[in-house]
Design a protein around this nucleic acid. Structure first.
Lengths: 158, 158
DNA sequence: CCGTGAAAGTTGAATAGTGAATTAGTCAGG
DNA sequence: CCTGACTAATTCACTATTCAACTTTCACGG
């Protein structure tokens, strides 16, 4: 960061909170990935499917999809190519702006989504949601939301 | 998961908590990575350095390092090779078990660690720790700890 | 001792992710 | 219209990660 040496080290309490957050996010991603594997999807695949299936007309501009999934344009482009080869999405050109492209959910993509979603939800419940008391879940969201906000403002290129 | 269709969908409250957690972990990793870039280190590099510098004799067995950094053996092996080429660590063979290897922090690795750590801590503070009220940080740890525990038990190969 | 199974670690090929450069299209000002 | 700055998206060259196959060593039951 900009300041050099006058930053206080993390207290024990802070250390532990930080390590715990770190461990949870990594282990959780791994676990979700594993639970998705039997369906031939990765976490990233799944997130694209969610975003598209919730979108108007099951389609989104590449840029918007990149923004909402927090990926670089380049990465998304590769990702969509893979999913296109797998038959889950297709690219469609955009009338109003000829530079633009839509990523569109195919019927197969939609079916896959409907088939897999319940299992994924179960997985999220089992390994995350259901491990909290209801109030503590809300406290979690409340304390994390400003962090997300801060990071979104701060974020540069991706 | 094993059960099929009797899993309740996520409530709105749950959805939001889940998305927020997801966003924070991704944005945060990106941000930390960016803050580390000027020093020529990645997040993974840094974590290896932390683990080794805290260890007895600044050395750890490959397996132990893999476990404590939650990586696969293969990935760690590649990672250490890169860091070895960068002069940050070296491999040393193990007397007591000739299959085994130690990853050892070099002097350069140690210096790098001492130089970079304050900046990294500042970064963690700025983008995470300091955004919580002290009690809410502790609440966070408390509610996340069982999740980490659960995931650690559940985890298979990696 | 010997053999068999498991553990420590590495390797290599295939897949995924990154960042800079590139292509193509838009749009405002003159 | 035309030019220069900007945006959408892809491509290229490189680095990182995964997964399975492999080597070496250990441990232990017969």
């Amino acid at each position: 960061m900009t300041t050099d040496s006058d930053t206080p080290w993390l207290t024990d309490q802070e250390q532990r909170a930080w390590r715990t957050h770190l461990d949870v996010s990594r282990l959780l991603m791994h676990q979700l990935e594993r639970d998705l594997q039997p369906f031939g999807l990765t976490n990233n695949d799944y997130e694209i499917l969610v975003n598209l299936s919730e979108a108007e007309d099951r389609r989104l501009r590449m840029s918007d999809l990149a923004t909402s999934t927090l990926q670089s344009k380049s990465r998304l482009s590769h990702q969509i190519t893979r999913m296109e080869n797998a038959g889950l999405v297709r690219r469609e050109s955009c009338e109003s702006d000829r530079r633009g492209l839509y990523a569109v959910l195919t019927d197969e993509g939609w079916d896959t989504m409907r088939r897999v979603a319940p299992h994924h939800v179960a997985s999220v419940r089992k390994h995350f949601i259901d491990l909290f008391a209801p109030e503590s879940l809300d406290a979690l969201r409340a304390s994390l939301a400003p962090v997300a906000e801060h990071l979104r403002e701060h974020r540069g290129s991706l």
